[in-house]
């Protein structure tokens, strides 16, 4: 390798290292902003101010969904397997919404700790399988859970 090329190689690697460090610092600094949603534990811990709009993500607790007979209003509990938060929503739910399914809701929390959503999105997990396999796994009790998706990644400083 000629000295000239060596110099250019050094220059390119330095440039990459520099940009890499800058990106790492930037991404780390905006950590809280890049997080799409807060977990229920986060919300219960009081890291989100009442009245400000934010997104909450978690699993719909089995057996907690209560639909209003005369309107589209629906109430349910959202959990990250640590804490849970009561959510109420008045609108059309996505197809994938069901008990045990992960969702992300946009809304705000009131002083009593109840979350009122203006938008509910379903969060799909990474498992794909045919219906028969899902049934078989269900019977055997080996169904992969959506828990992994909602490991508490948010460590937001108050």
């Amino acid at each position: 390798m000629t000295p000239k090329r060596k110099q250019r190689l050094m220059l390119v690697s330095l440039m990459l290292a520099g940009v890499g460090v800058a990106a790492a610092l930037g991404v780390n600094a905006f950590r809280d902003n890049i997080m799409l949603f807060h977990s229920p534990s986060d919300v219960v811990a009081g890291n989100v101010a009442a009245g400000t709009p934010f997104r909450i993500g978690g699993m719909v607790v089995e057996g907690s969904v209560a639909r209003d007979q005369n309107s589209l209003e629906v109430n349910f509990q959202l959990t990250d397997l640590g804490q849970s938060v009561a959510v109420s929503f008045d609108g059309i739910l996505p197809d994938l919404f069901r008990e045990g399914q992960g969702i992300v809701a946009l809304g705000s929390i009131d002083s009593s700790g109840k979350f009122t959503a203006t938008e509910v999105l379903a969060k799909h997990d990474e498992n794909y399988m045919p219906l028969e396999v899902a049934d078989a796994l269900e019977r055997a009790g080996n169904m992969p859970g959506t828990e992994a998706t909602f490991k508490n990644k948010t460590t937001v400083s108050p």
Binding site: R31, M35, L36, L121, K123, D125, E126, Y128, K153
Partner: peptide, 10 residues
């Protein structure tokens, strides 16, 4: 690294 709506890698 972050909470996203997109599912993790399969």
């Amino acid at each position: 690294w972050w909470n996203t709506l997109h599912q993790p890698a399969s």
